[in-house]
Design a protein around this nucleic acid. Structure first.
Length: 195
DNA sequence: ACAAGGATTCACT
DNA sequence: GTGAATCCTTGTA
């Protein structure tokens, strides 16, 4: 399959739906993602330029950008876009398709539907943390991204969750009708919707 | 050096 | 539905 992660991130992101991210025994089929650009996207960690935290977003596509959020959670992105330009796709939710027992043990007493429904949950179910920052996902390493065998039937797009800047840019993509998609919550800091 | 805010989740009412 | 937990990163003084 011809899979060009180096294309503009808002074009790449929807193509990740239905793909499977595997880390060792555990594999998750992606049902929800969000695109984050660089200089042109105020909601992106890379908006204000390169910093130690976001540097991997400026590198070549196909590596993991993992960051620590709210003092308690890890969240995982696949770096997209051309080398030298920032871009990443946040993996927001998915369905555990392999390694179910391990995923359950990592996620405490969550129901199966909630094992990877949410970015922090997905990273925890897969066992991804700071040490995986920069890990390639298209090589032969322990973390691998496998393209969807066949594209999802229907994809929907809408505003990203929890961002206060560019709160209406429709760069969140999900598989229509999937139960493995997180709830939409607008940031309380985002400007009010007109009306 | 300091303060503010965050690409969230969970338990409790 | 509401609020707490928790700490890292960044911009500013």
């Amino acid at each position: 399959m011809n899979w060009d992660l180096a294309a503009p991130v808002d074009q790449v992101a929807p193509t990740l739906l239905g793909a499977v991210l595997r880390h060792g025994e555990v594999a998750i089929r992606l049902t929800e993602v969000e695109a984050y650009d660089g200089a042109g996207d105020p909601a992106s960690h890379a908006f204000r330029g390169r910093t130690p935290r976001n540097a991997v977003m400026f590198g070549p596509a196909g590596h993991l950008y993992v960051y620590f959020s709210y003092g308690m959670h890890w969240a995982c992105n696949v770096v997209c876009g051309p080398d030298g330009e920032a871009g990443g796709t946040l993996l927001r939710a998915g369905e555990v398709v392999d390694g179910l027992e391990i995923a359950r043990s990592r996620r405490g007493r969550a129901r199966d539907r909630d094992l990877a429904r949410g970015p922090g949950r997905l990273a925890q179910a897969l066992g991804l943390t700071a040490e995986h920052k920069g890990t390639p996902v298209l090589g032969g390493g322990p973390v691998r991204l496998e393209p969807a065998l066949e594209p999802p039937e229907s994809i929907q797009a809408g505003p990203r969750v929890g961002v206060s800047a560019e709160a209406d840019r429709p760069w969140r993509f999900w598989i229509a009708g999937s139960p493995y998609v997180s709830d939409y919550k607008r940031s309380p800091r985002a400007p009010q919707v007109a009306g």
